[in-house]
Design a protein around this nucleic acid. Structure first.
Lengths: 167, 167
DNA sequence: GGCCGATCATTTGTGTACGAACTAACTGAA
DNA sequence: TTCAGTTAGTTCGTACACAAATGATCGGCC
């Protein structure tokens, strides 16, 4: 669990900061919602990589968050077009393609043409993909749990509700 | 303000989902903290791009969130080493380099050697960089405001506090 | 029945993100 | 002082993320 970022106390600045314009509104990067969202997400990604990444003691998931999202959605929804998959997993078409390509190379999903609409490419889990999802369920739940560990049950609910409102 | 992702109602699935194992714990991707964090961040990034991106009605900021974070931190703290800048702005060394390189190409920052420690490369705002930061302050504040728009003042405070706890 | 706008997939290009491996430089203890 | 451990920066490789442009296909409307 590396997470080399901002994990230590920051040492004193090398030189005195430029005095800001006293008329300017105060703007502290660390107080902005964007910065805090990014930090929280970073921590989550580190936890995810530790639990499902390549280095996670050979339990063999080796999935990125996006790859897991696609697999999980495919199991929830069954086979679907790339486009719908992208909407469900909240990623754009170009990104979906990359993720699906990598999953296809590993034999976890496959893609076939849709006879009803030849624009669609229908993506589905393979047997190996279904097995991997089944094996990874617990790890995924543990990642959610670890990410929320600093919060009480009430705080967790509040945070999820606020984030849903924000999205 | 494009945001093509998941902006529309999702149509019915093309075929019936595979029935999940009734013994498996329920796992809904949309309820996981990671998914919600990513969605919230996506929306923020779209708002940011609209307010400071290249297409934002020629007000000429044309900054990414990372680039803005570096510029804002440099103004808060004055000239600092790349490493410290990375810790302050919460990005790893390799990422800092890319961002600083692009800002350098645009003449917004420059880098010099530190005579006291020749490992350090000290990054500082140029005059043009300082002017751009001054011009962009209001836009940055508006982005924070727009991102938090769906929430009441109390909810905003609660969300920021919870995210701080999570980081 | 054939055109027109919308939809789907793909490609290209830019910009994060970060692990891993490497070199140069510093620092403290033997 | 010397050298082992640490730190700063760079490079490489992989994987998102998304705008924009392109080409194929569909669906409806005249």
């Amino acid at each position: 669990m590396t997470n080399r970022i901002a994990r230590h106390a920051v040492p004193a600045p090398a030189e005195r900061p430029v005095e800001p314009d006293p008329h300017a509104a105060p703007y502290r990067l660390d107080e902005q919602i964007g910065f805090l969202l990014r930090r929280a997400n970073q921590r989550h990604l580190a936890i995810f990589a530790a639990g499902m990444g390549a280095g996670s003691q050979g339990d063999g998931h080796d999935l990125t968050p996006m790859q897991w999202a696609v697999l999980a959605k495919l199991e929830e929804e069954g086979a679907t077009s790339q486009n719908r998959l992208g909407r469900l997993a909240a990623m754009d078409g170009a990104t979906v393609k990359g993720v699906v390509d990598r999953l296809t190379e590993r034999g976890l999903v496959d893609t076939r043409a849709d006879p009803d609409d030849r624009r669609h490419r229908v993506v589905a889990l393979t047997a190996a993909g279904r097995r991997l999802v089944a094996r990874s369920r617990l790890a995924a739940a543990a990642i959610t749990e670890d990410t929320l560990a600093p919060l009480s049950a009430a705080e967790r609910e509040a945070l999820l509700a606020l984030l849903r409102k924000l999205a």
